[in-house]
């Protein structure tokens, strides 16, 4: 909330309320992870590698959730991300397997698809004044349908198909050995994939954009109050368009990272991904009404949902649908908290 620097004194209450949400998120993550460590210590939950695995599996989600945060800051929403990821994965998988295109060309193509996708959605939202939800819901259907148009079967990327892409997916970056755990004979060094580093770079980049660039500040202003932003002479429409383009580009990038993790393309892929991204952003303290939010919170939101999934998986006996229910319950709690904070703020003001 750096644009409040000038008005820091007046908006102190609001800032503290928003920081509280972020604080709750971080504390919740630590408590949840610690509980997991205590309950499932025998199943290897305490290993540092478990934590890194959460990052590896969710590298794509981190990028997507960052883009989602930017859109939600303007007061919009983008529920087409899951379908866009499925389409990206299918383009990559089908392009490599059946059309024998190079990995680099396909990655560039996927990014271009992201830009076009975002421009189309952003244009409809910003310049045609259509509700973001309806536009992106149509996008969601379009993406899922296009995935089926490209190929209705499940396509896997194997080593024979594209050595370069396979190499990217299986590159390991070893961390110092003392962080690892004792194997049978010697310490096993923990590792991460390059995708994690790319995803974290995206988080840092978006953090700086939101905090220190003009575009980032305008995003907050538009989300806070569109009318006053317009009266200040800010270009509301252009900002919204850019937010949607940014979201779709980050989503395409996340789709590539996701594909590196799964190495397949199929119609049913990444279903409900939009929900995970929205949940992560909301749990991380982004207000659905816009104007308040932070990618650091979003990162922790992703980690929380990742931890839930990891806990359910480590347990082994619980049905996988429990992870969905837990995420929805958390989402519910955080939405209620937001409503309560908004109510308190309103009462204080009046």
């Amino acid at each position: 909330m750096a644009n409040n620097r000038q008005t820091a004194v007046r908006s102190k209450k609001r800032v503290s309320g928003n920081n509280l949400l972020l604080l709750i998120t971080i504390v919740l993550f630590i408590v949840m992870y610690a509980a997991g460590c205590i309950v499932y210590s025998a199943k290897g939950f305490t290993h540092f590698q478990t934590f890194l695995n959460i990052l590896i599996t969710n590298a794509g989600l981190i990028c997507v959730a960052c883009g989602m945060t930017c859109v939600m800051l303007t007061g919009g929403i983008d529920i087409s991300v899951g379908s866009l990821i499925a389409m990206d994965c299918m383009i990559l998988a089908d392009g490599m397997t059946n059309k024998h295109w190079g990995a680099i060309q396909l990655v560039i193509f996927v990014m271009i698809v992201g830009v076009v996708w975002g421009s189309a959605q952003g244009f409809l939202v910003a310049y045609m004044n259509i509700q973001p939800f309806i536009v992106t819901m149509a996008g969601m259907f379009f993406g899922r349908g296009m995935t089926a148009v490209i190929n209705t079967e499940q396509v896997s990327i194997t080593q024979d198909v594209n050595k370069l892409f396979y190499g990217w997916a299986n590159a390991k970056i070893k961390l110092p050995e003392f962080l690892g755990y004792m194997g049978k004979k010697h310490r096993i060094a923990p590792f991460i994939r390059p995708s994690v580093i790319l995803a974290l770079l995206v988080v840092v980049l978006i953090f700086f954009i939101l905090r220190y660039t003009k575009f980032g500040r305008v995003l907050y202003a538009v989300g806070g109050n569109e009318t006053s932003a317009a009266m200040m002479g800010l270009n509301v429409r252009k900002t919204k368009l850019c937010a949607y383009i940014l979201s779709s580009v980050l989503c395409s990038f996340g789709g590539i990272l996701y594909c590196l993790n799964t190495m397949t393309g199929s119609v049913q892929q990444a279903k409900g991904f939009e929900m995970d991204a929205i949940a992560a952003a909301v749990i991380g303290g982004t207000l659905l009404t816009g104007g308040v939010g932070n990618v650091i919170g979003t990162l922790f939101g992703v980690l929380i949902t990742g931890t839930i999934n990891s806990l359910v998986m480590t347990n082994g006996k619980l049905l996988s649908s429990w992870a969905n229910i837990m995420t929805a319950a958390l989402l519910c709690i955080f939405i209620l908290l937001q409503a309560i904070f908004a109510y308190i703020k309103k009462r204080r003001e009046s």
Binding site: A138, F141, F142, R144, G145, T147, V149
Partner: peptide, 8 residues
């Protein structure tokens, strides 16, 4: 699987 494109 493909009909959602037309719907959208």
């Amino acid at each position: 699987d493909q009909s959602p494109v037309f719907m959208a």
